[in-house]
Design a protein around this nucleic acid. Structure first.
Lengths: 226, 226
DNA sequence: AATAAAATTTAGTTATGCCTAAATTATTCT
DNA sequence: AGAATAATTTAGGCATAACTAAATTTTATT
């Protein structure tokens, strides 16, 4: 008996659902292997749990051997509930406790599983039912529909095109701090100056700063064109 | 496979510690049976876990067969940490989200285990480092000392004595609502009118209301005499 | 089409935290 | 003190969610 770990590193069903949702947003099925990588557990563990979630009543996922998983209506609702919690919490932490956008993710990650529906309603109301979180990500509605994102990845823009940053799809603290230092935050005006066909790098101007950005970044920033 | 319960109703070490703290506040050891009743699990389960907590390094409790449990310094710190979280959260939920004092307990019960030290610091600072929660219970300090409670149980007062309600030690929603309807909330002035030696009932006057209270209630209300 | 490589599942194991039933130890009563 | 009762622990078991190693199925290559 050493430090008495307990706190079983068991992954909650909610986390399974959330990650399956993220993997299937593009319409594809999520492979059990991809899920395993994302959840940082072994592939057999995922297969086992996915089989249970599929044979639960009501079923949370659809699953066929070697075909990967998708969410059922039930499963999707549960996933959107967690995502709504997460994003409302991020907004709430920033607005009322002065967290910065690079600090909120971890905290929200833990809180999202334990807040009540009452708590959810109260913070949503207190903030005037926000549509997006501090990164600009859309917040699922109270009736658990995901609004449609109409902005385009920065990576799809070409020189002379301009727009407003709508959303930055990233959770990593270091990256977020870096992007903020460049002014690459939701609401910022951006103009594409140059495009390099070799590596798909874009040279962009934000405020009075000009920066060269790689695909790894431009694919994560979403723009409302103007 | 039915509704897929998961969410192991496993009791966290933090909860064990919190309940042991509550049972040993009066200086006595906590019996494993009393703990079992409080945690609503079987006595053997408690014995097993308590043995682990005692042989963990660092040990969280001291335990000898048939002698019950007490907290070690480590264990007490961990317990006070959770209690501090709980009470700060209750205060914060009331102050910033408009919860009433009878609604906060459950929510705080779940949140207390997942908030970060950073979160704790932020809400404490935002509220100006409150000394008591909405029920008047003392909040352990940031360095994890429990302040000393200097008020007396209402049950110890006798006619003509007066004072201010300092603290109401109750968590039950119904009881709290009832007490609030009688004006029996922290800060209220109270005067003892009559004492019944048979059943120890007290007749008290709060505001312009006069009420007869049984021991079950008077033992839970703490008064600062005046 | 056959074979090699990769992805995925099955089989079997482990650790944990709970349980019930039985055994033991402590306490109370006459 | 001795017997009856109550409190507590030991023993043995079960369920769950993870794991590794082996088997199988799918996909890619020649």
């Amino acid at each position: 008996m050493k430090p008495l770990t307990q706190k079983t590193l068991t992954i909650s069903i909610q986390d399974y659902l959330k990650h399956i949702y993220e993997l299937t947003e593009n319409g594809e099925n999520a492979s059990t292997n991809a899920l395993a990588r994302k959840l940082r557990i072994s592939a057999p563990s995922v297969t086992g749990m996915v089989q249970k979630m599929a044979s639960a009543k009501p079923a949370l996922v659809e699953y066929q051997k070697h075909q990967g998983v998708t969410l059922t209506k039930e499963g999707r609702r549960a996933a959107l509930e967690v995502i709504r919690h997460h994003r409302l919490l991020e907004a709430w932490l920033v607005q009322t406790l002065g967290y910065s956008w690079d600090e909120v993710h971890e905290e929200a990650e833990r809180l999202e599983h334990v807040i009540s529906e009452d708590f959810e309603r109260r913070i949503a109301a207190a903030m005037g039912h926000p549509l997006r979180d501090p990164h600009g990500e859309l917040i699922p509605t109270a009736d658990l529909k995901m609004p449609i994102e109409d902005s385009t990845p920065l990576s799809a823009l070409r020189p002379t095109q301009t727009g407003t940053i709508q959303c930055v799809k990233a959770a990593d603290t270091g990256l977020l701090r870096y992007l903020e230092s460049l002014g690459l935050v939701p609401g910022a005006q951006i103009e594409v100056k140059e495009y390099s066909p070799f590596d798909h790098n874009l040279t962009v101007k934000v405020g009075r700063k000009t920066t060269v950005l790689g695909m790894n970044i431009t694919s994560k920033i979403y723009i409302e064109e103007s």
